[in-house]
Design a protein around this nucleic acid. Structure first.
Lengths: 93, 93
DNA sequence: CCTATAGTTAGATGATTATCTAAGTATCGA
DNA sequence: TCGATACTTAGATAATCATCTAACTATAGG
């Protein structure tokens, strides 16, 4: 994982709403946008914007099928992000 | 770690400059502001602002001694943050 | 075809924020 | 006491960004 992707992920997580959205996606094998949005007080346009950020960060994969956009967490990217955060140079004192 | 602190940390990490600053602090037992700033192209005022955010997020401890402000990573908070991120509900598929 | 559903895009707006300058406080050493 | 160093605070500015509305594309089902 290069620095650019790392920072994009860090930024993507920094909005609570987007974090919640990612969290919902992560809990399922796959989820359509409309299901993500159910009971969230945001418009479809706003969701679309957040999804774009998550995809752009490499955290979410989007598969189109008919009218639907199915979303899935890219677990490999998530693991790599955690791993890089874990390697944060914390000198042992 | 409650949600508020979690989000404050997430936000604190989301600025690359601030992440770099935290990284420098983490590498040492303790570090003065002036040492953090050496060779960073920012003013003392900007550094002061970032330090305030890091302290506010609970990631950094500040100890005053004479003219100096000594900074230290709060390793417990960092561990708790990683631990909470690790518990992200990633259903196993 | 027509209508409803799913999602996207463009553009506007208001809030947040990273940064600076300028001026302040506090401490140290001569 | 004076000047230098370390840091903070207040206020301004410009950039970023979360959100909305309105209009769009595309698909599914009668």
């Amino acid at each position: 994982m290069d620095s650019q992707q790392f920072y994009r992920i860090t930024k993507a997580l920094a909005d609570p709403r987007r974090y919640e959205i990612l969290s919902r996606i992560a809990k399922c094998r796959e989820l359509a946008c409309s299901d993500v949005r159910c009971d969230l007080p945001i418009t479809a346009a706003t969701l679309s914007h957040h999804i774009k950020e998550l995809v752009n960060a490499g955290l979410v994969e989007l598969r189109r099928e008919g009218q639907f956009a199915h979303l899935k967490l890219r677990r490999k990217a998530w693991r790599e992000y955690l791993s890089r955060l874990g390697k944060f140079k914390t000198a042992k004192f």
